[in-house]
């Protein structure tokens, strides 16, 4: 049919693909327009006028800053934990074949393969059974659990591409295990880990379903957004926060894309 690599796509296919991409992007672009609207009581379109006032109003909001700060802290700690656990797991799974290896892969993927509400409610009921009060750490616990898989996937893909004979060569040349780790293994998997970490950060930063079950009175930024979605109080501030959230999550995604270009596609593997 289309053997010629320079063959042109049929018009229908082009239109359908373009329409699909538009469908995916126009709603997000709308957020950017609404962040500057002068209308504050409704979602009126087209906006009656544009203003930068809401940026300033949002900047001065203490609750937004607190929610943002909590989200950043949770995402940082959860990402570090996930990077540690995910890398260990990936190293174990890729360097040896052992009984139950497939089961471990399944176990790592399970927290995101099952609907988030199951993870959330399971953790919540476990906390209440064990009499653990909700805190910063209960949120982190939940987030780290489903972030492991992102780091794991990235690390496994990179370990698979890293030739085993590099490690053998290093050992043959007299390096001990730690020197090999430091001078051979780490430089090889470093960018994959970084990319995995960025994606884990983005995942944690955005998470809301599990968080509603594992947070007490504290508000992460998504919880703050959810409150505003259910009971809109200050639409202009919500609009600005929505825009900032989109911008902030784009950065790690672009970064992860840049770091792993031309090899394993990290973000595509699993969200």
């Amino acid at each position: 049919m289309r053997s010629d690599p320079n063959a042109r796509a049929p018009l229908g296919l082009k239109l359908a693909a373009a329409a699909g991409l538009l469908f995916m992007h126009v709603p997000i672009l709308l957020i950017f327009v609404y962040a500057f609207t002068t209308e504050e009581k409704s979602y009126q379109w087209p906006p009656p006028g544009f203003t930068l006032r809401w940026l300033e109003v949002t900047w001065n909001r203490v609750d937004v800053w607190q929610a943002l700060w909590l989200s950043v802290q949770v995402a940082t700690v959860a990402t570090l934990l996930a990077m540690l656990l995910g890398t260990l797991c990936a190293a174990a799974v890729s360097r040896t074949r052992f009984f139950g290896r497939e089961t471990i892969s399944l176990l790592v993927i399970l927290p995101i393969a099952l609907p988030g509400i199951i993870t959330g409610i399971a953790l919540r009921s476990a906390f209440s059974l064990a009499d653990i009060p909700f805190s910063f750490w209960t949120i982190v616990l939940g987030h780290a659990t489903f972030c492991i898989v992102v780091v794991y996937n990235n690390a496994v893909a990179r370990f698979r591409r890293t030739a085993g004979n590099l490690i053998e060569a290093s050992m043959d040349l007299g390096a001990d295990g730690f020197q090999t780790l430091r001078h051979v293994i780490m430089p090889n998997i470093g960018t994959a880990l970084l990319a995995g970490g960025m994606l884990a950060f983005a995942l944690s930063f955005d998470e809301v379903i599990v968080t509603t079950f594992t947070a007490g009175q504290q508000q992460t930024l998504p919880i703050w957004m959810l409150e505003e979605l259910v009971r809109p109080r200050e639409r202009p501030v919500t609009n600005v926060v929505a825009m900032v959230v989109v911008l902030v999550t784009f950065l790690p995604i672009l970064g992860a894309y840049y770091l792993t270009r031309g090899g394993d596609s990290p973000a595509a593997a699993e969200k």
């Binding site: 995916m24 709603p27 809301v208 998504p222 979605l229 995604i253 894309y257």
Partner: peptide, 11 residues
């Protein structure tokens, strides 16, 4: 990738 990773709530 960008729509995939942009915030669920914002979407």
């Amino acid at each position: 990738m960008l729509p995939l990773w942009s915030s669920y709530l914002v979407k």
